[in-house]
Design a protein around this nucleic acid. Structure first.
Lengths: 144, 144
DNA sequence: ATCATATACATCGAAATTTGATATAGTTCC
DNA sequence: GGAACTATATCAAATTTCGATGTATATGAT
């Protein structure tokens, strides 16, 4: 049984990400904006503070980014019924469309690469999907 | 044999990356700067134009970013002996240190998560490393 | 050789983004 | 009801990025 080399795994993922992440820009949205849209797409409605935990931004920067994305019609804010101070932020259909179109772009790119693998290699990849998913879950359980 | 679902693989990697990429900031370096350092760390000395191909920036923005990183002592430029117009950009020891410290941070984080997997799951991951590496190579061969 | 054209990079000013400090409004607990 | 805390907003300054354009070097056709 092969021993797992975490250092090499890390390097390989870092390099893989240079082709996975860098997509042509969409609609003048920078990395911060896209990250916010992605987080909202995954997490349902979130308060500003919860978004803040995930994003690499200070609160005032996030406030103005959210305001801008709201103006662009990509997300919407409504009052939090439980807490008068807070607002709940969620994607609009247009916002979700951007996330899913970027996802589709990646799927296309990846499908093209995967096509060039041997059936055995594809099977190895298929097996790793659930493990990768587990890793993400474990990490989330630790940082709730 | 399991069939590979590329759509799901894409989603899983996207989500995994939310924990893999987002690290606490270093030395006021933003995403663009870190990406440049990473690319240089991998690719040896590069001309500005070659860097441009990898990074999501326009040339004037990259010129000023490189100038700033040079001032910070993280990279250095020397004249290209083959081409009087160009300069060759490479990391200094300090620049390489930043890349490797971020790498070490990721290794630590990942090692901690991997520890919580079963031996079988670790083996699956170990097998996938070479396949993931192949995917990256295939992509690079297509976009030289 | 010479001139036209292409390439590599720099410079400049404007627009957009992010930050730190601070303000405001709502909530909780005693 | 008031102190302490939390969620978000505002504002000016610093940083980043961009589009347009300039300068120097290289290349290719004549």
């Amino acid at each position: 049984m092969t021993e797992l080399d975490v250092d090499r795994l890390t390097t390989v993922i870092e390099d893989f990400n240079t082709i996975f992440i860098r997509l042509p820009g969409v609609r003048r949205l920078n990395f911060s904006a896209l990250s916010v849209l992605h987080t909202l797409d995954r997490g349902g409605p979130l308060r500003l503070t919860d978004l803040l935990a995930t994003e690499q931004l200070k609160q005032p920067a996030l406030t103005s980014l959210v305001a801008k994305l709201e103006q662009d019609g990509l997300l919407e804010r409504r009052a939090d019924p439980t807490d008068g101070r807070a607002s709940l932020i969620s994607l609009t259909a247009a916002g979700a469309e951007i996330v899913s179109s970027r996802h589709a772009h990646r799927v296309g790119k990846l499908a093209h690469l995967v096509d060039q693998l041997t059936p055995d290699e594809r099977a190895v990849l298929a097996n790793s999907v659930d493990v990768l998913h587990r890793l993400t879950q474990i990490s989330r359980e630790e940082t709730p």
